[in-house]
């Protein structure tokens, strides 16, 4: 049995105020994957992550982390995860080194080893010069990197980052991308939430899209991009023969006795489609663009970004 990094089934969360943040989501993350959890603000990304990392109590449903149920084997599940949360959550008065060493201690890493690891990770994240600086004196990008270093101190199998690049300038964003890619290549599963499609596209192999507390899509980045390049039309026709036309770029589907759906790459010359239909003696009476939930979501996402 190949165990998964994350298995979520029918997860629901209603906050005490009555907000239904998750309406029963299910998805898996493969071991070693680099996956994006994409969705607009308020979609339920942070809630999902909060539940996986025991910061939020779930209302119902099941979560497993590397096979460990968070209800029955919470401690084992926690050891597998390193979390970089959306909001800064360290003591502003402690120094970088204190913060990472203390965190390692919480996982039972002896101090001597914690000090060695602190040097390794703070150096990798260009924070070693700032090791004795109180966290509140760091810039936004440094604080973000400090949280990454802190999350890696117990050498987790999976790193979860909640909007790690929000409000970080482009140069730091790129170096962070590089860092995460290296980490993933070395075997760490990486889960990242973002509301930038570009970021997901650059980094991730797979993508789960969440909106209004529901999973909209859970697929490979490749498939998603190719589908975003397609348009679907609904054609009302006078007859639908058993054998529909056959074209390399276009797929035809019979919807009922008087309707055909076609998927066409964007900017494909449509008259080629009509030629094929004419050849089969099919007359198109009317045609409309089928609204695409995914597409609509992306329009909204890109407007925001």
């Amino acid at each position: 049995m190949t165990e998964k990094a994350i298995e979520i089934s029918n997860l629901k969360k209603t906050y005490s105020g009555g907000v239904e943040a998750l309406k029963g989501i299910s998805f898996d993350v493969e071991k070693g994957d680099f996956i994006a959890l994409l969705g607009p603000n308020g979609a339920g990304k942070s809630t999902t992550i909060g539940i996986i990392c025991s910061l939020v109590n779930k209302t119902s449903g099941e979560v497993r982390v590397f096979g460990h149920s968070i209800d029955k084997e919470l401690e084992a599940a926690k050891r597998c995860i390193g979390l970089v949360p959306q909001e800064f959550n360290f003591s502003q008065f402690e120094t970088c080194k204190q913060i990472v060493v203390t965190q390692a201690g919480y996982y039972g890493v002896p101090r001597v080893i914690a000090n060695e690891r602190a040097e390794i990770w703070l150096k990798k994240l260009s924070l070693w010069d700032k090791r004795d600086t109180p966290a509140r004196m760091l810039s936004g990008g440094m604080k973000r990197r400090l949280m990454i270093a802190r999350a890696l101190m117990h050498e987790p199998k999976m790193l979860i980052l909640d909007e790690p690049t929000a409000g970080v300038d482009i140069e730091i964003r790129r170096s962070m991308w590089e860092f995460l890619t290296e980490l993933n290549e070395a075997g760490t599963t990486v889960v990242l939430t973002t509301h930038y499609l570009e970021e997901a596209e650059q980094l991730c192999r797979n993508i789960t899209i969440i909106n209004h507390g529901e999973i909209v899509e859970n697929t490979s980045m490749k498939d998603l991009i190719s589908r975003l390049d397609m348009e679907t039309f609904v054609l009302d026709v006078d007859r639908v023969p058993d054998s529909l036309p056959d074209m390399k770029e276009v797929s035809f589907r019979k919807r009922d006795e008087a309707t055909i759906e076609i998927d066409v790459p964007k900017e494909f010359a449509l008259n080629q489609v009509f030629h094929k239909l004419s050849d089969k003696n099919i007359n198109v009476l009317s045609m409309r663009n089928k609204s695409n939930r995914l597409e609509e979501l992306f329009v909204r996402l890109t407007e925001k970004a």
Partner: peptide
């Protein structure tokens, strides 16, 4: 209280202490 306020309490909550 300041650990709650600054949310650094989360450092403990995510870990297996």
């Amino acid at each position: 209280f300041s650990a709650k306020f600054q949310r650094s309490i989360e450092e403990m909550l995510v870990s297996p202490v």
